[in-house]
């Protein structure tokens, strides 16, 4: 089990990586907009966590968020090809954008 953390630590350090926050925010925004049933989200996330555990993934924060990302990809109404194409487009946008400039598709 992860060691008990410091419950008195100040707020503002809950997300180690921006994408950790973005993945949960995406799910919550879908729920609030009425496009995702909370139970469906809990079940999909639970299944993704079980799958990661069965695959021998370490019991870490990174594993949790990767499972949450996989769950969000499953509940979002986009096919794998669409997601991959969009991811590739973002990667290309980052590669061609000089450092410090806003990255746009």
């Amino acid at each position: 089990m992860n060691a008990p953390d410091d419950p008195l630590a100040p707020l503002g350090h809950d997300f180690k990586e921006p994408w950790h926050a973005q993945v949960l925010a995406g799910a919550q925004a879908l729920i609030r907009a009425g496009h995702l049933d909370p139970t469906t989200w809990a079940e999909t996330l639970g299944a993704a966590l079980r799958e990661a555990e069965a695959a021998g993934a370490p019991d870490t924060e990174e594993t949790y968020y990767l499972a949450a990302l996989s769950a969000l990809e499953q509940v979002a109404p986009f096919g794998a090809e669409t997601l991959t194409a969009r991811k590739t487009a973002w990667a290309e946008a980052y590669r061609r954008t000089p450092h410090g400039k806003p990255v746009v598709l």
């Binding site: 994408w19 993945v23 995406g26 879908l30 990302l69 986009f78 991811k87």
Partner: peptide
């Protein structure tokens, strides 16, 4: 990172 790009792809499509 790869997961950050996957989230970015999802978020922009949503």
């Amino acid at each position: 990172s790869d997961p950050a790009l996957r989230v970015k792809a999802l978020e922009s499509l949503l």
